[in-house]
Design a binder for these strands. Structure first.
Lengths: 367, 367
DNA sequence: CCAATTATGAGAAGACGCGACGTAAAGCTA
DNA sequence: TAGCTTTACGTCGCGTCTTCTCATAATTGG
């Protein structure tokens, strides 16, 4: 059942119009009052009221009028992206990446730390906190300057941000990651699966910028996927949407075996394949076949506009994708586009930033 | 990018409040003015204005005040469900079912016609039109009394309501079903895949009433599925979400072979199994295994709250479901509930009714 | 220095929703 | 049957929000 607004008085109207003005301001960069009013579909006066409201909340600022054109100089306003910040974290088995971004989503600080696969949970968390606080300190933020924080990690993360199952990180299962990260900065905290966040990042600013329905396939030392429909992340009832790799008949487990057999020489194999080595090409083709099988299941289930391939194996590049497209065409009537991930290893932290921004836009900006 | 309202003046407010009032009226049945105002979160005066607006549009009506309680008798209003009607059609290979429903979604007329598998498209369409118009005539509706019509059918139906692929009905591919049905009644027409509509029906009033994320598995002489997330139907880019059965390794094609070998004695096998016949039980188990394999893929991809099993094979009942649950538990970490379809063969036409109502509520009621 | 251009600022009008207050119409009781 | 109680109705006035209009201000270009 749809929820209907509770207060339908004129105050709602102003909230709505302030929202529209803010939207126009963020969308079109610094603009004059008249431009903003037109962009927001409002009268100049209304936009003016909304802007003074936003200015009071620190979200907008009048900048000096720029000449150049005839006529009375217009008042110009800009969005104060520096009014707040969010933290995005990627805590993986071997790597920790922290990002600090402003309200425009521009990353202004970044810290990378190595971790050990067998590192206990407490130590790993301490490392993550150190990386994140280093970013915050470097940016010179005061307490309360972080408005939301999200952490991405491998494993199943439930709706509340708790890790329900993690096979790759010791001591991770049962951890309340969202609560942890929230306590570090005294702000709302969130946690999500890494493949899901990678999908979010690709949709935000990566290969999937222009589509609303997409599947992200994480192919590497482990398999997983992320699903975005109507531009929104779908994590399912328990947060375990994205575990298709668990189904043996899909063959994703095998895919990693294909290369695991070649040990750490995956990159070597890809190079050999690019050079035309028959045997290496066969390996890549087998890999592509496995990936295509899982992708086909995804495509036949949700029929997305785009499949984005990321993770370690995606370094095989277009070579892998071409084989994958070929196999996919055999398996599906009308296969979607297949593209490489844009951000590679940074996608998880970026997706975390985006998810934190989602919360800020919803709750603090009122969008 | 989110679309923002274009006219944020006070007229928007009235639309919103009228909508809230209509919602309260439909939700709670006939009510007094004061009750309606409270339910809609509005002042009595505002609700009154909204109701007179709705009355002018024929959607609400003041009914005679009922005594019984002390105090001045309250004005009572009721939703005029008879103000408009919708048609829902199920056009299958062997069967045509037409339903006429009012704005409450109550089915007031129904016609069933047999068709032949090899019947040419034009003849099948004529039959469908006859069934539908018979309903409309029996209800005594004037021209324009049907506000929307939807037809469900097997095969892939694209976003525009055109059948892009149909392997079961001759001459069906390429047909503009939505346009056809719209022309019959001079109203907006829609078309959708049958498994998708069955999912909609189960969510509306069936086994999936209380969930928002569900998968409907159609298991019978052919396989298919329907997907609802956040209560909304997901048909994908080309409308072909629901074709998981096409992936050979899922084993759904085989499932039908399992029973096809037993010919038309499927019902007999189910009965024998229920009586404890070992061999029959083995057949049911094999069927359940195949179904579970596909369902597991669905569950691992979208992690729904519920899997609803429908179609001819679902007549095997709880026996089949129990085996399916067992297999599913082996394949997924934390499998969802599994339930039988509530509506059986009527689900497709019912889903079509619901989809037509969706349009009416969106466009004509302004909900 | 003047004309053209562009944006500003103030005031009036229209629409909407809500609270308050007096009034109307029933049931209940003596 | 008269009066009390209860419940809801109807109207009035106020405040908020948006838009339209028109006079005014501040630039640029010739």
């Amino acid at each position: 059942m749809r929820t209907l607004g509770v207060t339908n008085d004129t105050a709602l109207l102003r909230r709505l119009n302030t929202r529209a003005t803010l939207h126009a301001l963020r969308q079109g960069g610094p603009q004059t009052l008249t431009q903003l009013a037109r962009a927001a579909g409002l009268s100049r006066q209304t936009a003016e009221v909304a802007l003074s409201d936003l200015a009071e909340r620190g979200l907008a600022e009048e900048s000096s009028p720029t000449g150049g054109t005839a006529g009375r100089p217009a008042r110009r306003f800009r969005f104060r992206a520096e009014a707040g910040h969010v933290v995005g974290l990627d805590v993986g088995p071997r790597r920790i990446l922290a990002m600090l971004a402003d309200l425009d989503g521009d990353v202004i600080e970044e810290r990378r730390l190595d971790a050990d696969e067998h590192m206990p949970a407490a130590e790993r968390l301490a490392l993550a906190e150190r990386a994140a606080t280093a970013c915050v300190r470097a940016a010179g933020l005061a307490r309360g300057g972080v408005w939301a924080a999200t952490v991405g990690t491998s494993g199943v993360v439930d709706r509340s941000g708790r890790v329900s199952v993690s096979t790759l990180i010791p001591g991770w299962s049962g951890l309340d990651l969202a609560g942890q990260v929230g306590r570090w900065f005294g702000c709302p905290g969130f946690a999500a699966n890494d493949a899901n966040l990678a999908a979010v990042a690709e949709h935000w600013r990566g290969s999937a910028r222009h589509v609303e329905d997409l599947v992200y396939v994480l192919s590497g030392y482990r398999a997983g996927h992320g699903l975005l429909l109507d531009g929104r992340l779908r994590t399912g009832r328990t947060g375990s949407a994205g575990e298709l790799g668990r189904l043996p008949l899909i063959g994703w487990e095998d895919s990693s075996v294909v290369l695991d057999r070649a040990g750490r020489d995956a990159e070597e194999i890809f190079q050999a394949a690019r050079a035309g080595d028959e045997e290496a090409l066969a390996v890549v083709d087998r890999l592509a076949h496995g990936l295509a099988q899982g992708a086909a299941a995804l495509v036949l289930v949700v029929d997305p506009e785009l499949v984005v391939v990321g993770g370690g194996f995606s370094r095989a590049g277009e070579l892998l994708l071409d084989r994958m497209r070929a196999h996919l065409t055999e398996m599906c009537r009308n296969p979607p586009e297949v593209a490489l991930s844009t951000f590679g290893e940074e996608s998880i932290a970026l997706g975390a930033v985006r998810m934190a921004l989602d919360h800020v836009e919803r709750e603090r900006l009122g969008l």
